Amino acid sequence: MEETLGFIGGGNMAQAMMAGIIDSKIFSPENIIVGDLNKDSLKVLEKNYGVNTTTDNNEVVRKAQIVILAVKPHICDIVIDQIKDNVKKDTLIISIAAGKKISQLEERFERDVKLIRVMPNTPALVGKGMSAISSNERVSEGELKEVLEIFESFGEAELIEEKLMDVVTGISGSSPAYVYMFIEALADGGVLEGMPRDKAYKMAAATVLGSAQMVLKTGKHPGELKDMVCSPGGTTIEAVSILENKGLRSAMIEAVRGCVKKSKEL
């Protein structure tokens, strides 16, 4: 793309996005500009990615046609107040601030702006992110397609209705933490039975990764894939029976519901 892409905020998520975008050649490093107050962070970005940097967020807005607000929710309003007078009519503003609704962002800008809200997750750091994308009515289909291409450069991306964003938090944004707990517990079981911890973590994590790929690539229902592993009277159905008795399924559902409820309260 011949446009300039801007980031306000140069933290881990912004760097994960940059890596995917540059690797996919969607934008070249010289067409990316990053604004951050931390000069040491900017030096790292220049060295690792070859992008342009500045401590002036308004410079980002003046130069970029697409601007990603890669800042924490409590910083988002401060940044918008800094840049709102310099945002051009056709600039695409993309916010990844959790809990910040499009209507809230529009109100803060105090003018008509093309706004896109995205909920990515931390596996973007290894190019396996999952991002949910919503926009206001000022964003065209062509612009949404361009944004999808950007976020698909470091994982998967889906367009959704904004009213589902809190649900996305429960099953995608926050859920890596649940999966890490499952991997840790699975490995602990192996350690209890005598396996060295490093090997237990590797086997547990690789199995979770492979199982997830089976769901995505085969298109089969997870229950069908589970049944393929469960032989009559075998070891797997014995383990599945224990997990059901201990409430794994209901605990996970309640965890998601609790996460969604908290997201709505923020």
Results as ranks from 00 to 15, higher is better:
L5C: 14
L5H: 13
G6P: 03
G6S: 04
G6R: 08
I8G: 07
G11I: 03
M17E: 12
M17S: 06
M18I: 07
I33L: 14
V34T: 10
D36Q: 09
D40Y: 13
L45N: 14
K47L: 13
Y49K: 08
G50D: 13
D56Q: 14
R62H: 15
R62C: 15
K63D: 13
K63T: 15
Q65N: 15
Q65W: 15
V67R: 11
L69M: 12
A70V: 10
A70Y: 02
P73N: 10
C76W: 05
Q82D: 14
D85W: 15
V87T: 06
K88R: 02
K89M: 08
L92N: 00
L92Q: 02
I94W: 07
I94T: 08
S95T: 10
I96W: 08
A98M: 06
A98Y: 01
Q104L: 03
L105H: 03
E110K: 15
R111F: 09
D112E: 13
L115D: 02
M119L: 10
P120A: 03
P120G: 05
N121S: 10
N121L: 01
T122K: 01
P123F: 01
L125D: 00
L125S: 01
L125H: 00
L125P: 04
G127A: 02
K128G: 11
S131Y: 08
S134G: 07
S135R: 00
E137N: 12
R138E: 15
E141T: 04
K145V: 09
K145Y: 01
E146A: 14
V147S: 09
L148M: 15
S153I: 07
A157W: 03
A157C: 08
A157P: 15
E161A: 01
K163V: 06
L164S: 11
M165A: 00
M165D: 00
G170T: 05
G173Y: 01
A177Q: 09
A177I: 03
M181Y: 12
F182M: 04
F182W: 02
F182N: 03
A185W: 08
A187H: 01
A187L: 01
A187E: 06
D188R: 10
V191P: 00
L192M: 06
G194Y: 11
M195C: 11
M195I: 12
R197P: 04
K199I: 12
A200P: 02
A204V: 03
V208K: 11
S211T: 12
Q213A: 10
L216V: 12
L216E: 04
G219A: 12
E224N: 04
L225Q: 10
D227C: 06
V229F: 04
V229T: 11
S231F: 07
T235K: 07
T236C: 06
I237R: 07
E238Y: 08
I242W: 10
L243F: 13
E244M: 10
E244H: 09
N245I: 02
M252D: 00
I253S: 11
V260N: 04
V260M: 12
S263F: 04
E265R: 12
E265Q: 14
L266F: 13
